[in-house]
Amino acid sequence: MKEELSILLEKYYRGDTTLIEEKTIRDGVSNMKEPDSLHDVFAYYDSAKHLPEDILEEVFTGLDRQEKKRRLPTWSYSATAAAASIIFFMMAWSIHQNKINREQQFALMENALVSVSEGLQPVEEDQEMLVLWVDEDVEIIIN
């Protein structure tokens, strides 16, 4: 085991080890009983790997939030467009209806005024007429 570690360490210092071999070296060094400088060097590298637990959750929660936020505009644009169309048609319909109503009211008012006007006119009495002479050229009438 010690011999294997020593061979691997030679390779390590030549820069020729793979990541798996380096893991074996680290395990071997951490199990060594006598203190070694390499033990502290590896402890130093490991200390920097410490990642606060909450970070990953927070990062991916942020991603979910962003995704929801990103989805919202697509949905809201369609909804806004639909609402705008409805409002537009309602307004056009309302204007059209008002116009028709105004014409109807005007006609109603006109009829009412005509009726009133006719009601106020004195009744024409039938006048008696005496027709004295009628031919093709002359007509003689006496009221």
Binding site: A48, L51, P52, I55, L56, V59, F60, G62, Q66
Partner: peptide, 28 residues
């Protein structure tokens, strides 16, 4: 990847807060 790259990102940005924000932005 996030777990693996965090130390390198922190070495460049020098602060936990900036690294956290950068990692989040990178993932987005």
């Amino acid at each position: 990847y996030a777990r693996k790259l965090y130390p390198m990102m922190k070495r460049i940005l020098c602060s936990d807060e900036d690294t956290r924000d950068a990692l989040q932005e990178l993932m987005i």
